[in-house]
């Protein structure tokens, strides 16, 4: 791959996820060096930059379970030319979305009031805390998403394949063994 004259800017974040996809991203191992020849990181847990500026690619892990997730996702969508949803939670809500069959008030009631062993429980109401949404949503239900990398987490190889396809201007494609939802 020829190094482009100007490095592409990439931002990453984790919303209602477990950072497992970021860990898997690191599993591209020594290929990180090759990648760093092509890209530089903006907002990301890797850089600790808090807000993203204009980027070529935004990679978002995790679904949307609260108001802050929505704000961050909108920041990414507004700044990133290409937005990639990475991992099961970003793609279909994943594990957190398994609460969707229950009503949120019932969940809060159970966790903070009714649960066995709780005394004087109260639902946290600090304005610093983001409020939870009534249902957990995958990213594409709230903003337009350009590409998806499914998997829980997707393997480093799958992530590498999608990124290199994109950097080379190809439509990303994962064949057997790379595409998986678990």
């Amino acid at each position: 791959m020829d190094a482009p004259t100007k490095k592409l800017k990439v931002a990453t974040t984790s919303l209602a996820g477990c950072f497992g996809c970021h860990m898997s991203f690191l599993d591209i191992d020594e290929r990180l060096f090759a990648l760093l020849d092509l890209v530089e990181f903006d907002r990301s847990p890797i850089t600790d930059i808090k807000h993203c500026g204009p980027c070529d690619i935004g990679i978002v892990e995790g679904g949307l379970c609260n108001a802050e997730n929505v704000h961050v996702l909108r920041e990414f969508r507004a700044n990133c030319r290409i937005l990639i949803a990475i991992g099961a939670c970003a793609v279909n809500g994943g594990l957190p979305a398994q609460r969707n069959s229950l009503s949120l008030p019932a969940i809060l009631e159970e966790i903070y009031h009714a649960q066995h062993g709780l005394t004087h429980g109260s639902i946290p109401d600090d304005p610093e805390l983001p409020l939870p949404l009534d249902k957990v949503h995958p990213l594409h239900e709230v903003v337009k998403v350009d590409y998806f990398i499914p998997g829980c987490p997707p393997s480093g190889d799958a992530i590498w394949k999608v990124l290199t396809d994109l950097l080379a201007g190809r439509e990303p494609e994962l064949g057997h063994g790379l595409i998986h939802y678990d």
Binding site: V91, K135, P138, E173, Y181
Partner: peptide, 21 residues
């Protein structure tokens, strides 16, 4: 799942119904 892999389904695309079953 395997058929979705075969056909390269990268996302569910539509809005989820999230039914209660």
């Amino acid at each position: 799942q395997a058929t979705a892999y075969e056909l390269g389904m990268m996302s569910p695309h539509y809005d989820h119904f999230f039914p209660n079953r």
